[in-house]
């Protein structure tokens, strides 16, 4: 019971610290705003994102089409709003996968040590040698480029950071008294790992989740931009930029706005992550 009260007090403490951190506040506002846009896309979008309108092709931003139209006369603002769904979905699912894998392997390596640790950490070193984009592209070449494949592949190639972090946490936590206590009560290894040690390592994992979503969104947009990610006509910010590139000389709005959307989104997650890190780490407060 005491521990529980302590836990909640600790949580309130870092929540209040976070609310005083301008970076974290700005980041949370951006992320929450984006989620709202993604969830309520059908109500917010002024037009159908797929509706082709040959009378209004490549129109500059105007009162009718706030962010202009593309080569097929589709409304850019509506496509941007629907694109938010893709980006968030990819970011969250991909990072969900990588966090699960990373946490599991990192926990095993940190808890058991010895050859399991050597094996897993060697695998991490090897995976870190592949430039991620090259590895993803090599895998994508075999698969139909679809949003689900992209999410799985990004998830499978970005778990190494989490694994290292969780391993380090486990190394420092596994010698504590509460682990010994759990072992004396006869708890199994899996129980010690997942219900005793892991909850104490949640905070740093949350930081990497926030930062990871940002970088997953960047990766997805790069892949879609290269034509091997989310395929048209599904609007994603990356493939909207491909159209921008194709009409670079005549339609600047097609290149400017989707990129800004990516920038703001990734910035939001990065700020949230960094703010979270500062709030969780009291040492950093003196900075």
């Amino acid at each position: 019971m005491d521990a529980y009260v302590d836990g909640t007090r600790h949580q309130i403490l870092w929540l209040s610290r976070m609310s005083k951190n301008p970076m974290a506040v700005a980041g949370s506002l951006i992320v929450v705003g984006l989620c709202i846009v993604a969830i309520f896309a059908p109500w917010l979008a002024p037009y159908d994102p797929q509706a082709i309108d040959t009378w209004h092709v490549l129109e500059a931003p105007s009162r009718m089409h706030l962010l202009g139209t593309d080569a097929l006369g589709r409304d850019c603002l509506s496509r941007l709003i629907y694109g938010a769904r893709i980006s968030l979905l990819v970011g969250i699912v991909a990072v969900g996968i990588s966090t699960l894998i990373g946490t599991f392997l990192g926990a095993l390596a940190g808890f058991y040590g010895r050859w399991i640790d050597t094996l897993i950490m060697r695998l991490v070193d090897i995976m870190l040698c592949f430039p991620t984009i090259f590895l993803i592209m090599a895998v994508i070449a075999f698969l139909e480029p679809s949003i689900w494949n992209i999410m799985v592949v990004i998830g499978l190639t970005s778990w190494m950071g989490v694994a290292r972090l969780v391993r380090a946490e486990f190394l420092s936590l596994k010698g504590r008294d509460f682990v010994l206590a759990a072992r004396i009560t006869g708890a199994s290894d899996m129980r010690i790992i997942f219900s005793h040690i892991l909850p104490n390592a949640v905070a740093p994992i949350l930081v990497t989740v926030a930062l990871g979503i940002g970088s997953a969104i960047l990766t997805e947009s790069a892949l879609s931009f290269l034509g091997i990610g989310v395929q048209p006509p599904t609007p994603s910010w990356g493939n909207m930029l491909t159209e921008g590139k194709n009409n670079l000389e005549i339609a600047w709005w097609l290149s400017v706005f989707p990129g800004m959307a990516i920038l703001i989104t990734v910035l939001g997650y990065n700020l949230l992550g960094e703010g979270l890190r500062d709030a969780l780490d009291p040492r950093m407060m003196q900075d």
Binding site: L218, S221, L248, S255, G259, I262, L263, V266, L267, N270
Partner: peptide
């Protein structure tokens, strides 16, 4: 630094091409 870190490189490339090139 935060903005530069979050900016998709290929988008910055497009903008620079648009401005300095076109």
């Amino acid at each position: 630094v935060f903005v530069a870190y979050a900016a998709p490189g290929f988008w910055v490339a497009l903008l620079l091409m648009l401005y300095f090139g076109v």
